[in-house]
Nucleic acid binder design. Structure first.
Lengths: 201, 201
DNA sequence: TGCCTGAATAAATTCTTTATTGTTCACAAA
DNA sequence: TTTGTGAACAATAAAGAATTTATTCAGGCA
C-alpha cells in the first residue's frame, strides 16, 4: 500500500474526508454510505481515498476517535472549570456525559450504526475511552477527598462504580426507555443518592 | 375461535405445552421453534394448539409471565426471609435479581430471542413486572426506615433509583460486558455505595 | 355435541441469482 | 517522483424464486 505521509497537506485531506463522512454517516448511516459518495463529496475518486485511509472501517474508526476526543475535551472542561465544589463538579461531569450522548443520538439516530460497528470491530477504541473517562472522574473524586467533601478510599474504583450506576444515562441502548423528563427526574435522584454515598460524614 | 374453557383439564394441557415450549425455546430459540415441533412434543396436532393459545406469540407471552412470576416469587422470598437487617435484605434482593438474570441466560443464551420479542410486542408484560419489582423493593426500603437503618423520603422513588443504578446487573444486554468476577466486584462496590447513600446518619 | 385432525392458504423464511459496493492495481498526468 | 484515475476483482447486499411455517377451517371420530 502506498501510504500518504504525515505532511500537513495529507492531514488536511484526511480532515476534509472526515467532515464529509460525518455528514453522510449522520444522515444515512454507516452501512448505506458508499466510498464513492464520500469520494464525490471530496472531489476525488474512490480509489484515492485509500491513499489516506486503510479502508472504510478505518474512516469510521477515525471519526469515532474524533468524536470521543471531543467528548473527553468537554469532560476536561468540567474538570478545570473554576469555582465548583467537588459535588457540583461530579454532577456537572455526569450531566456532560448524559448530554453528549443524548445530543449525539437525538438529531442523528443513524449514528448508532457507527457505534455498533466500532463496538464490534474496534472494542479497543471504546475500552480506551472508558479508561480515560474513569480516570477523569477519579480525579474529581480525589479532589472531593482533598477538599473534605468526600470520603472515598479508592477513587479509581469508586469512579467505576459511579459510571456503572449512571450507565443508563450514557448508553444509547437506553435512550428510548424513558422520556427526557423522566431522565431528568432520574438523574436528579441518582446524583442525590451517589453524593450521599460518597460524602464524608 | 373456539376458546377452551377454564377447566382444570385445559389448564393441565396449557401447562404441558408450556413445559415442552420452554425446552424448545431454551435450546433452539423462539424463532427456530415451530408450532409443529411443539405440537409433536405434546402428542397433538399443530391445529390443536390453537384451542389453548391464541397464537405462537401468546405461548411466548405465557412462558414469559410464568418465568417472571417465578422471579417475583424469589424476590418475595427475600422479603419474608426472617432475621435480616434492612441492609442485608436490600443486598439479598439485588443479588437475587442479578442471579436470576445471570442463571437464565448462562445455560440458555437463546432465551434472549423470547425476551426480545416480548420487549418489542408485549411491553405491558415487562412494564408490569418492573412495577412489581419496584414496589417490592420499596417495601424493603420502608422497612429500613422503620428500623432506623435508612433515611428515605420517598421509598418508591428511591426504589426506582436503586433499580436504575443496578440495571447493569439485571439487563441481559450487559451480561457480556464483564466477567462473572468483575460483576461480583462491581456488585460489592455498588451495594456499598447505595447503602451509604440510603443510611440514616 | 364436544374434541381433534389434515388439508388449504397466507405470511414469513431460506435459498439463489443478480446488482452494488469495497478494494486493488497497472498506469496516466503533473 | 507525486498524485491521482479507471478498470478489474472479490465481497457484500438487494431482489426474486422456492420453501417452510403460522394460522384457519371444513369435516371426522368419539
Amino acid at each position: 500500500m502506498i501510504k500518504a505521509g504525515h505532511s500537513s497537506l495529507a492531514e488536511e485531506v484526511r480532515e476534509r474526508v472526515l467532515i464529509a463522512t460525518r455528514a453522510r454517516f449522520g444522515q444515512y448511516g454507516y452501512n448505506k454510505t458508499t466510498m464513492a459518495e464520500i469520494a464525490k463529496d471530496c472531489d476525488m475518486s474512490a480509489a484515492n481515498l485509500y491513499r489516506f485511509f486503510e479502508d472504510k472501517q478505518a474512516i469510521g474508526a477515525a471519526l469515532a476517535c474524533q468524536t470521543l476526543a471531543e467528548k473527553e475535551r468537554r469532560l476536561r472542561d468540567v474538570i478545570v472549570q473554576p469555582g465548583l465544589s467537588a459535588t457540583q463538579r461530579l454532577e456537572a461531569f455526569v450531566r456532560a456525559l448524559f448530554r453528549f450522548t443524548y445530543e449525539q443520538f437525538h438529531d442523528k439516530p443513524r449514528i448508532g450504526e457507527l457505534v455498533e460497528m466500532i463496538s464490534r470491530e474496534r472494542a479497543d477504541i471504546i475500552g480506551q475511552h472508558k479508561e480515560v473517562t474513569r480516570s477523569l472522574l477519579a480525579t474529581v473524586l480525589a479532589q472531593g477527598n482533598a477538599s473534605g467533601e468526600f470520603d472515598v478510599r479508592d477513587p479509581s474504583a469508586s469512579a467505576e462504580t459511579v459510571i456503572v450506576a449512571t450507565t443508563i444515562f450514557c448508553v444509547p441502548y437506553f435512550l428510548h426507555w424513558y422520556t427526557r423528563e423522566q431522565f431528568e427526574q432520574l438523574f436528579k435522584q441518582m446524583m442525590e443518592l451517589i453524593v450521599r454515598g460518597l460524602e464524608k460524614r
